[in-house]
Each structure stands twice: as C-alpha cells, then as structure tokens.
C-alpha cells in the first residue's frame, strides 16, 4: 500500500502547492490556471477515494466550466490597480494568513484529538479484507443493491441484474462487475430515490441562477436608479435624528454633506 500513499502525497502536495501559488500569483490568469491544476490533482484524489464519478464531475464542471468562465470574465474586464480605500487593508493582509493558520491549527487539533488520528484509524482502503470499515461499506453497498426495486421492460421481463438479484440495475451485471460506492449507477439510483427532492431543488437553483445571471449582467436602463436608489431610501427612513443644533446634529450634518459630495462625485464620474 505504499504506492497508494505515495500517490496521495504527490497529489496532495501538488494540490497544496498549486493552491498556494494561486493565492500568491499577481496575474489572475495565472491564478486561474493554477486553480485548474489544483482541481486536476483533487480529481486524482477522488479516484483514489474510489469516487470516480465525482472525479469526472470535478474535471468537467470545475476545471472545464467554472474556471473557463472565470477566464472569459477576465478577458472581458481589465483590472486597473488603484489606491486602496480600505482602511483595514493592512490588517486584512497581515492578519488574514494568521487567521488561516489559526484555523488550520484548530483543524489539526480536532483531527488529532478525534478518532481520526493518524495511527488510530488504521487508514481506509476500499475492499480491504482486514478493514472492518471497508467491510461495513461493502455490506452497505450490498444492501443498496439488494433492496433495489427490479426494473422490468415493456414485455414484463426483468432487465439486467444478476441471477440472484434479477433486474436491479439496468445495464449492470452485478455478477460480472464489482459494485463500488462511487459507481455512477448506484449514485444515480440514490440521487433519484433518496435525494429526489434536493435534486429537484438543485435543478431549480440552476434555473434561477441562469435567469438571475442574465438579469444581473444585463446592461441596466439609464435612469433606473435615479430616484429610489437604495442609498437615498436608506437615509430617508432615519426616524430619530439628533436634536437640532446639538453637537451630534452638527456632526451628522457634516457627515451628510460629505456623503452628498461623494455621491455627486460618483454621479459625475458616471
């Protein structure tokens, strides 16, 4: 099993390094490419986990669709570096990695203190005869296969399946082929039975996202936000202002003036 671990280390190490590189790259295109590289490595890890379908999805959706979309956008928009208005920028840059390390430390503590300790869990490998977890997993797969409802064709004959379990999965002969947890057929079966509603909701989300993306990205009509822009409404409902003439009032007025000036500047810029 050394080979397997070796592969894991290679994949994980490359993924980690390329992700770090992504964060450090100045050019967003480089970052996107490194991100694709990371995703490929992760897909390898999914295969190592016995989740081939997800590995395929990872490559298709993430690397193929999403990152390509990113690249498209990058082509559309040119980034002009400007001065930072964010007063917490320094704090963010300095304290962000520290926070990330703190979080990592916490994860490590949790992992080490829990039953997933490196030497305690004895690792995990599919189809390991000596691994109790693996045996339980196999039993679970078997359970899914056995309790599945037989499929019948138009003439009433069972379709597919094995001699012991006729017509469980179309196109899958369980006698001949090993059934793993990552098998797309099993996953699809599960998705369309146990996770039917979430699945439908996910499809709805995709639809909404598609429509939403069109609506948001569409060029807005010229005087859409002239009268009731959120900023104006927001200031309009301030009910309890400070007492007129009080120091607070003068201060707010001053701030209001500043805000108005900023707004005018924005409008002019447009």
């Amino acid at each position: 099993m050394v080979l397997e671990q070796l592969i894991f280390f290679v994949l994980a190490g490359v993924a980690t390094l390329s992700s770090i590189g992504m964060v450090l790259m100045k050019d967003p295109v480089h970052a996107a490419l490194l991100l694709v590289f990371t995703f490929f490595n992760l897909a390898g890890l999914y295969i190592l986990l016995g989740a081939e379908f997800i590995a395929a999805l990872q490559v298709l959706v993430y690397a193929g669709a999403i990152v390509v979309l990113f690249l498209f956008i990058m082509m559309l928009l040119q980034v002009r570096p400007g001065p930072s208005l964010n007063r917490l920028r320094f704090f963010q840059t300095g304290f962000g990695p520290v926070l990330a390390l703190l979080f990592l430390a916490e994860v490590l503590v949790v992992v080490f203190a829990s039953g997933f300790a490196l030497n305690g869990g004895k690792g995990f490998a599919p189809f390991d005869e000596n691994n109790k977890q693996a045996q339980q997993m196999a039993a679970s797969v078997k359970y899914v296969v056995e309790t599945a409802v037989p499929l019948k064709d138009a003439s009433g004959n069972t379709v597919g399946g094995s001699a012991a379990n006729p017509g469980i999965l179309p196109g899958l002969n369980t006698d001949k082929e090993p059934v793993t947890a990552g098998h797309p057929a099993l996953l699809g079966k599960e998705l369309y039975s146990t996770y039917l509603y979430p699945f439908e909701i996910a499809s709805l989300i995709l639809l909404i996202a598609a429509i939403g993306a069109i609506v948001i990205a569409r060029r807005q009509l010229s005087n859409d936000n002239e009268d009731d822009s959120p900023s104006k409404i927001g200031r309009g409902i301030s009910l309890a202002g400070p007492i007129p003439g009080s120091p607070q009032d003068l201060e707010t007025k001053k701030e209001d003036r500043l805000l108005e000036a900023a707004e005018r500047k924005l409008v002019m810029k447009k």
């Binding site: 990592l104 490196l118 030497n119 690792g123």
Partner: peptide
C-alpha cells in the same frame, strides 16, 4: 491504505489557503 485523517488535514490546509486568499 490511506488514513482518513490525511484527507482531513489536506482539506484543512486547502481551506486555510483559500481563507487566506480571500482575505
């Protein structure tokens, strides 16, 4: 045979890197 903890640690590392990147 890969202990599950390795995956978790990898996951934590990647998450931390992403977090740092966001910030």
């Amino acid at each position: 045979m890969i202990p599950v903890a390795w995956y978790l640690i990898l996951s934590g590392v990647l998450f931390a890197v992403g977090l740092a990147g966001v910030l």
